[in-house]
Design a protein around this nucleic acid. Structure first.
Length: 282
DNA sequence: ACGAGAACCTGTTTGC
DNA sequence: TGCAAACAGGTTCTCG
């Protein structure tokens, strides 16, 4: 489900109720997520105070007061929900795999129907952890520039759409924002990666940053699973120009008064749907 | 070494 | 209506 903007939204939501709070009670109702929960998962978290929550790529890292890092990935369908303090908590639903009770009385539930998500612990430097060590630059950071992207794409023959999904090229982009960024940058998703250099790379970097910032500002995109931890939906799906808009008119071409008024097309690349305009994306 | 495709798992939508 | 196939925001393994 979640790409960078959705994970960022979840991270901020959790941060509001977890930062500085103690994990008073942790219960896991199902241990076989994508990676089995580590031995003693609940026991190692219980009693710990959460010092800080941060996002890296599509991961959430929670720093605990004993130095341990609690690593969370939401996979495709993972969701965190916050239930305010109260005695009328709704019953656990089928895929509520882990429940966290904070010292404040607030409850946080991790729900993940498809179980592609994971939770584990990192001891020591998170940048050296196998799940994180090969991940590329954060797209919203100063390290992600046109020349940096161009260098990462040099010699790559895979289509640029697939390269954007490659977390070693750039962190946090998934299927929605890869489509949207290419659409905005007017680059064909089929274009061979090594041909995205110079000005094209600059343009793509700018498009990636813009679309991610805009999406974060409205709480990410809700297609089916994503909710902000508060329960509120994301709203960026209303701003999609390409993703999930097969057959819709291309607004870029319409604005340019293109005589053919082209429609958004859908194709499959590396097993994932790509939505694009075959006219203005070259 | 690289890239494409399958696999992981469940739920929902689409098509015959 | 009913059932099967296709599809879904991700990652990782296998195979050619």
């Amino acid at each position: 489900m979640p790409e960078l903007p959705e994970v960022e939204t979840v991270c901020r939501g959790l941060s509001a109720v977890m930062t500085g709070e103690r994990l008073a009670l942790v219960q896991n109702h199902r241990a076989n997520l994508r990676i089995a929960l580590p031995d003693g998962f609940a026991a190692r978290l219980t009693g710990r105070r959460v010092q800080k929550l941060e996002r890296r790529a599509k991961y959430i890292l929670a720093r605990l007061d004993d130095g341990l890092i609690w690593l969370i990935h939401l996979g495709m369908s993972g969701r965190m929900s916050i239930l305010p303090k109260g005695h009328n908590q709704p019953p656990l639903s089928k895929h509520d795999h882990v429940v966290f009770e904070m010292g404040s009385g607030v409850q946080v539930r991790f729900n993940d129907a498809r179980r592609f998500g994971l939770m584990t612990f990192i001891e020591g430097d998170p940048d050296q952890h196998p799940l994180l060590k090969d991940i590329g630059p954060e797209p919203l950071g100063g390290d992600f520039t046109g020349p940096v992207l161009a260098a990462a794409l040099k010699g790559k023959k895979t289509p640029i759409k697939s390269a954007l999904l490659d977390q070693t090229v750039v962190a946090g982009i998934g299927n929605i924002y890869a489509c949207e960024a290419l659409y905005r940058a007017a680059i064909s998703p089929k274009r061979s990666s090594h041909l995205v250099q110079g000005e094209r790379a600059d343009k793509l970097v700018a498009a990636v940053k813009d679309v991610l910032r805009e999406a974060i500002a409205v709480g990410g995109s809700t297609l089916r699973d994503h909710k902000q931890p508060s329960g509120e939906l994301g709203y960026f799906q209303h701003h999609f120009a390409a993703y999930d808009r097969e057959g819709g008119i291309c607004q870029v071409c319409a604005a340019a008064k293109h005589p053919k008024s082209p429609l958004i097309k859908r194709m499959v690349q590396a097993g994932r749907s790509t939505f694009y305009c075959a006219v203005h994306q070259r």
